[in-house]
Design a binder for these strands. Structure first.
Length: 927
RNA sequence: GGGCGAUUGGCGCAGCGGUAGCGCAGGUGCUUUACACGCACAAGGCCGGGGGUUCAAAUCCCUCAUCGCCCACCA
C-alpha cells in the first residue's frame, strides 16, 4: 500500500478538505517572511512536534533517527558556520520526521571553560576587579549568572532559523547529570591508569594562565629573528674560546642548562673530546656541552642551547642528559627570581634586555631574519609559552586503536570520504591529551589529596576525609578541559550513566545517525567522541555518518573573522530575506568539494526569488480553486487529493514529479544538499511553473474534465513539491500547505508524510514526456521566430509541422490534439501537423529532432535575413555531422564503444543528414 | 617540510569518461488568468598551461603554475 493511502491520521478517514475551507484560499499578494515565521514556529513548538514521538505521529516500528547538535558555546552568537551546519541538520531531521521515524535532534549548550571565564573576567575588569578579588566561589557563581543571562542567546537564534530541535529537553554540559557522567569517566580512566599526572612541558597561555592541549594552539607563521649568541668556554680548547648558539628566543637563555651539538659534527668534536664546558653569560652558570641526535648540524650554527623548562624538545633532551630544569618565568610569563637581574621583566622586555646585554659584552655574533611558526592561544591569541608544570593527561593510544578500526571498517563513515585520511593521520600519531586547566569555570578534577598520609585518589562522590587515615582531604584545584566534557555529548545527553534511563534510551536510539560539523573540530571533538563512546558503551560508535560541511568564506574567499570584520550576520539575512531563503541559499551551495564563498548578492537573491516564486505559483493555484471540491477528488480511504491525468501535459508533469521523488528517495540523495536543492529548484520553477502552470491555464479555460484534472493536478503536484521542499524551507511551505485543499488531515506539513517514490512510480510516462517535449519545441520555435523578426508575440502566425521521426503519425496526432495549448502559449493561428506536410511558401523553417516546423511569415519578414540565418544553421549542422561521421568512421569506436552510444551516434547522424537536406532545400526555395 | 582541495562564459557555482549547464550581471522584446523578486528570446566558454591513458577526457593519470586550507618539535 502506498504511503499516500496508508494514513495513520488521528482524525479518521473522511475527506477533510472541502469548499468550506475556501476562505483560506486567498494569499496576500506578497510573501512576507517576517510576519509568518514566528507564529508558525510557536505553533510547531506548542504542538509538541519537536519531541521524539512527534506528538504521536511517529511510527515506533520505524528505525529512529537521532542527531546531536554540536553544542554551541554559551558565549556564542550565531555565525554563518552555525547557520549552515544547523540548516543541514534540520533538513535531515525534518525529512526523517516526515518519513514517520521517531526523530530527535538533541540540543544544548557547552559551558566553554576558557571562553566563558574570559567573558566574566572582562565583566569584572570593567568594575576594576579580578577573579582573585572575588574568590573562586563567587566567581563560579558569577559564571552561572552570566550563563543564565546570555547563555541561551544562540538557542533563541536557532529558533529563528526554524530549527526543529528538541528544545524541551535542552542539555547543558554543566547539568548535574552531565557532571555525573564526567565523574564516572574520569574515575574509570583514573582507576584503569588511562588518566595520569605528569610533570611536563605544556602549552601555557600566560594571559588565561592555564594549560592548553596541543590542538588548542594555533600556529601562525611569523617573521622573527635568529640571534646568534656567543657562549664562552670555561677553558679555551686550542684557540677556540667560545661557541655560537642560534636561538629565536634569546630570553630563555636565562634558563639554559646545557648546549647540544650533533654527534657527527666535526666542528665541535674537539670540544666534546675535551669535555669542554660553557660559562653561561649573564648567569655565570657552568653548563655542559654534549651531543644529541636531535641536533641538525645544518641549521643555525649547529649548536643548540638547551632550556629544559621552556621548550618541549629541550625538555626531552634535558631528560636524556639529566639536566637541571630551571623555570625562569612566572605563570604570567614574567621573569622570576631564577632570572637574576632580569627578574620582573616581561618576556618581551627580557628579550631586548638580554640581547642588549650580549651586545654590550661583545657576545652578540650576528642576527638574521627567520620565518617560523609561533603558537597562539586559540581563545585569546596570546603567544603560547611552553611551560613546565604538573598537569593531568589521558593516555590516548589504547583509546585510539578501536576508534581507528571503527572508521576503517565503515562503522563510522565520513562525508566527504577524504576527511577520513585526516582522521587516520591524527589518530595514528596521537599524543597524550593534557586535560587539566588552571581555570575556575568548569568541571573540577575529582581527585582528592590527603596531606597527612599522602593518599591520593579519584572519586565519583565528593570526599571530606581520607579513606585511609581519616584526616581532612583537599580536592585538586584544576578543572577539566571543556573538550573532556564535550566528548561525552552523544551519550551523556541521553541519560548515561544513570542505568535507569540510559539502558532503555540508548539501546533503542544509539548510535545516532549523523553528526554534522565543521572540519576544525574533527580532532578536538569528533575523534574523542568516537573514542569515549566505544570505551564506555561496549564498543558502540556514537554516530554512523559524519558530515564535514564546507567552511563559509566571504565573497573573496577569505575566512570570516572578527578581526577582518568580514563576517555576515545570519540574523541580518533572516531579517532581510527570510529564514527559508537563507537556508535554501546555503544548502544550494553545499557541494562536497568546495568551500562556500558567500556572496550575499548572488546567493540570497536567487533564494529569495525562489521563495517568491513558490509563493506566487501557490497563489495562482489557490486562485483557480473556487469551484474545486476536494471531497470529489480524493482517495476514499485517506481523503487525500489524488491526481487525474487527462491530457499529455497532465501525464507529463506527473511523470516529471515521479522522477523527482525517485531521485530524493532514501539512499539516493545522500548528503548532496546542493544537488537536491537544485533539483527541487528546477523542477518547481522550470517544469511546474514555466510549463505546467502555463498549460493548465488553457485546461482551466476549457472547463469540464480538463479543468477538473488541471485543478487536481495543480493541487497534487504543489502538495508533493511542498512536502519535498519543506525540510529546506519550512516556513513558507507550511504557510501555503495549511491553506491548500489537499485533503490531508494532518495538522501540519511538519508531520505530513514524505512522498513515497513507490507510489509515484506508476506515473512515469515516457510517451507523455516525449509528446510534451515536442509540443514545447513547437512553442519555442514560434516564439523564437517572432522574437527574431520583431513580430509582436501577440501576432498569430500560421504553422505547419512535418513530423519525421519513427512515430511520425502518432506525433502528428499528439500535436494536433494540442491546438488549444499552441494557441494559448505561442499564439499560433492555423495549425496543421502531419507526416506528409509540405512547406508553405514564404515560411521560416526550424528543424527540431524529428520535427520540421514551418512558420508562415508572408508580409512580416525580410527573407534575406532568413536566408542568412538558415545558412548559419546549415553550417552548424554540417560541422556537427562531420564530427559524428569522423567518429563513426573510426574502427576503434565501432569496436569498443557501448552499443547504445554507437546507436545514438548513428541516429544523430541520420537526423543531421535529414536536417541538412531540409535546410538545403529551404535555402534553394528561398533563393 | 609533508598532505589535501580549488582553477569551467564578466561574477558566483554545477557537471566528473561520450559533442558544456544554472543563477546573477549585460542585450532585445513583453502589463500574457500567479509572480518585474516576473515572462519570452537571443548572445556569451579552445572547461589554468603542458604531457599521457582511452575509440572517446572539462571529466582518469602525471607534471607545472596560481590561490586556499590542514598537519609538522628544526633551535
Amino acid at each position: 500500500m502506498s504511503e499516500l493511502t496508508n494514513d495513520v491520521s488521528v482524525t479518521g478517514s473522511e475527506c477533510t478538505a472541502s469548499s468550506e475551507s475556501l476562505a483560506g484560499l486567498e494569499l496576500p499578494k506578497n510573501y512576507d517572511p517576517g510576519t509568518i515565521e514566528e507564529p508558525l514556529f510557536k505553533k510547531w513548538f506548542d504542538s509538541g512536534y519537536f519531541s521524539r514521538n512527534v506528538a504521536g505521529f511517529a511510527d515506533e516500528q520505524k528505525p529512529s533517527y537521532t542527531i546531536v547538535i554540536p553544542p554551541p558555546n554559551i558565549t556564542g552568537v550565531l555565525h554563518m558556520g552555525h547557520a549552515l551546519n544547523n540548516t543541514l541538520q534540520d533538513i535531515l531531521t525534518r525529512k526523517a520526521r516526515m518519513q514517520g521515524r521517531p526523530t530527535r535532534w538533541v540540543v544544548g549548550t557547552d559551558h566553554a571553560g576558557i571562553a566563558t571565564q574570559n567573558k566574566v573576567e572582562q565583566k569584572l575588569a570593567a568594575e576594576g576587579k579580578t577573579r582573585f578579588d572575588v574568590g573562586r566561589e563567587a566567581f563560579v557563581e558569577a559564571c552561572w549568572q552570566w550563563r543564565d543571562e546570555y547563555g541561551s542567546t544562540i538557542i533563541e537564534q536557532l529558533k529563528s532559523m526554524g530549527c526543529s530541535c528538541d528544545f524541551e529537553h535542552e542539555k547543558f554540559t554543566m547539568d548535574s547529570d552531565y557532571a555525573a557522567a564526567i565523574r564516572k569517566v574520569f574515575v574509570d580512566w583514573f582507576d584503569n591508569g588511562l588518566v595520569y599526572k605528569g610533570h611536563r612541558i605544556i602549552n601555557w597561555c600566560p594571559r588565561c594562565t592555564t594549560a592548553l592541549a596541543d590542538d588548542e594552539v594555533e600556529h601562525v607563521d611569523e617573521t622573527g629573528h635568529l640571534w646568534h649568541l656567543r657562549y664562552p668556554l670555561v677553558e679555551p680548547v686550542g684557540d677556540i674560546e667560545y661557541l655560537v648558539v642560534a636561538t629565536t628566543r634569546p630570553e630563555t637563555m636565562l634558563g639554559d642548562t646545557g648546549v647540544a651539538v650533533s654527534p657527527d659534527d666535526e666542528r665541535y668534536s674537539a670540544l666534546i673530546d675535551a669535555g669542554a664546558q660553557v660559562k653561561l653569560p649573564l648567569m655565570d652558570r657552568i653548563i655542559p656541552i654534549f651531543t644529541d641526535e636531535y641536533v641538525d648540524k645544518e641549521f643555525g650554527s649547529g649548536a643548540v642551547k638547551i632550556t629544559p623548562a621552556h621548550d618541549a624538545n629541550d625538555f626531552e633532551v634535558g631528560q636524556r642528559h639529566d639536566l637541571e630544569q630551571i623555570n625562569v618565568f612566572t605563570e604570567e610569563a614574567v621573569v622570576n627570581a631564577n632570572g637574576g637581574r632580569f627578574e620582573g621583566m616581561t618576556r618581551e622586555e627580557a628579550r631586548e634586555a638580554v640581547v642588549a646585554a650580549f651586545e654590550e659584552l661583545g657576545l652578540l655574533d650576528h642576527i638574521e631574519e627567520h620565518d617560523h611558526a609561533v603558537g597562539h592561544c586559540y581563545r585569546c591569541n596570546t603567544t603560547i609559552e611552553p611551560w613546565l608544570s604538573d598537569q593531568w593527561f589521558v593516555k590516548m593510544s589504547e583509546l585510539a586503536a578501536p576508534a581507528i578500526k571503527a572508521v576503517r571498517e565503515n562503522q563510522v563513515v565520513f562525508h566527504p570520504k577524504r576527511w577520513e585520511n585526516i582522521y587516520f593521520h591524527w589518530m595514528e600519531n596521537i599524543r597524550d591529551w593534557c586535560i587539566s586547566r588552571q581555570l575556575w569555570w568548569g568541571h573540577r578534577i575529582p581527585v582528592f589529596y590527603c596531606d597527612t598520609c599522602g593518599w591520593m585518589g579519584a572519586s565519583v562522590e565528593d570526599l571530606e576525609v581520607c579513606p585511609k587515615c581519616g584526616a581532612a582531604v583537599r580536592q585538586d584545584e584544576d578543572v577539566l578541559d571543556t573538550w573532556f566534557s564535550s566528548q561525552l555529548w552523544p551519550f551523556a545527553t541521553q541519560g548515561w550513566p544513570s542505568e535507569a534511563t540510559w539502558k532503555q534510551e540508548l539501546d533503542h536510539y544509539y548510535p545516532t545517525q549523523v553528526l554534522s560539523t565543521a572540519r576544525d573540530i574533527i580532532f578536538l571533538w569528533v575523534a574523542r567522541m568516537i573514542m569515549s563512546s566505544m570505551y564506555f558503551l561496549d564498543g558502540k560508535v556514537p554516530f554512523e555518518d559524519v558530515i564535514v560541511h564546507p567552511t563559509v568564506l566571504d565573497k573573496y574567499g577569505n575566512i570570516m573573522s572578527k578581526s577582518r570584520g568580514n563576517g555576515v550576520d545570519p540574523l541580518q539575512l533572516i531579517n532581510t530575506y527570510g529564514a527559508d531563503s537563507m537556508r535554501f541559499g546555503l544548502a544550494l551551495q553545499v557541494t562536497g568539494s568546495q568551500d562556500l564563498k558567500f556572496d550575499e548578492e548572488k546567493i540570497m537573491i536567487m533564494a529569495r526569488n525562489f521563495a517568491t516564486k513558490i509563493w506566487n505559483a501557490s497563489r495562482f493555484v489557490l486562485m483557480n480553486l473556487k469551484d474545486f471540491d476536494a471531497s470529489q477528488a480524493c482517495d476514499e480511504t485517506s481523503g487525500k487529493v489524488t491526481p487525474l491525468a487527462v491530457t499529455d501535459a497532465d501525464r507529463w508533469i506527473l511523470s516529471r514529479l515521479a522522477r523527482l521523488t525517485a531521485q530524493l528517495a532514501d539512499g539516493q540523495d545522500g548528503y548532496d544538499f546542493g544537488v537536491i536543492a537544485r533539483s527541487l529548484y528546477s523542477f518547481f520553477w522550470n517544469e511546474f511553473c514555466d510549463w505546467y502552470i502555463e498549460f493548465s491555464k488553457s485546461q482551466l479555460n476549457q472547463g469540464g474534465t480538463e479543468r477538473a484534472a488541471a485543478q487536481r493536478n495543480l493541487v497534487f503536484v504543489l502538495d508533493s513539491a511542498l512536502r519535498m521542499l519543506h525540510p529546506f524551507m519550512p516556513f513558507i511551505t507550511e504557510e501555503i500547505w495549511t491553506r491548500l485543499p489537499h485533503g490531508d488531515s494532518r495538522p501540519s506539513l511538519m508531520v505530513a508524510e514524505w512522498p513515497n517514490s513507490a507510489y509515484f512510480n506508476d506515473f512515469i510516462d515516457d510517451q507523455a514526456e516525449l509528446a510534451i517535449e515536442q509540443l514545447c519545441a513547437v512553442v519555442t520555435a514560434v516564439r523564437a521566430t517572432k522574437a527574431r523578426y520583431g513580430i509582436s508575440p501577440k501576432q498569430p502566425l500560421d504553422v505547419v509541422v512535418k513530423t519525421t521521426g519513427d512515430h511520425a503519425l502518432n506525433a502528428a496526432d499528439v500535436l494536433n490534439s494540442q491546438l488549444e495549448q499552441l494557441k494559448s502559449m505561442a499564439r499560433v493561428g492555423n495549425f496543421e501537423a502531419s507526416a506528409t506536410a509540405v512547406k508553405p511558401a514564404h515560411s521560416s523553417v526550424t528543424i527540431q529532432a524529428a520535427l520540421e516546423i514551418y512558420i508562415q511569415l508572408e508580409g512580416f519578414v525580410d527573407f534575406d535575413a532568413e536566408k542568412a540565418r538558415l545558412q548559419k544553421e546549415l553550417d552548424k549542422k554540417v560541422g556537427e555531422l562531420e564530427k559524428i561521421n569522423k567518429k563513426l568512421g573510426n574502427e576503434g569506436f565501432l569496436a569498443k564503444a557501448d552499443v547504445a552510444i554507437i546507436e545514438k551516434a548513428k541516429s544523430d547522424a541520420a537526423e543531421l543528414d535529414k536536417s541538412i537536406e531540409q535546410l538545403t532545400e529551404q535555402l534553394a526555395d528561398i533563393g
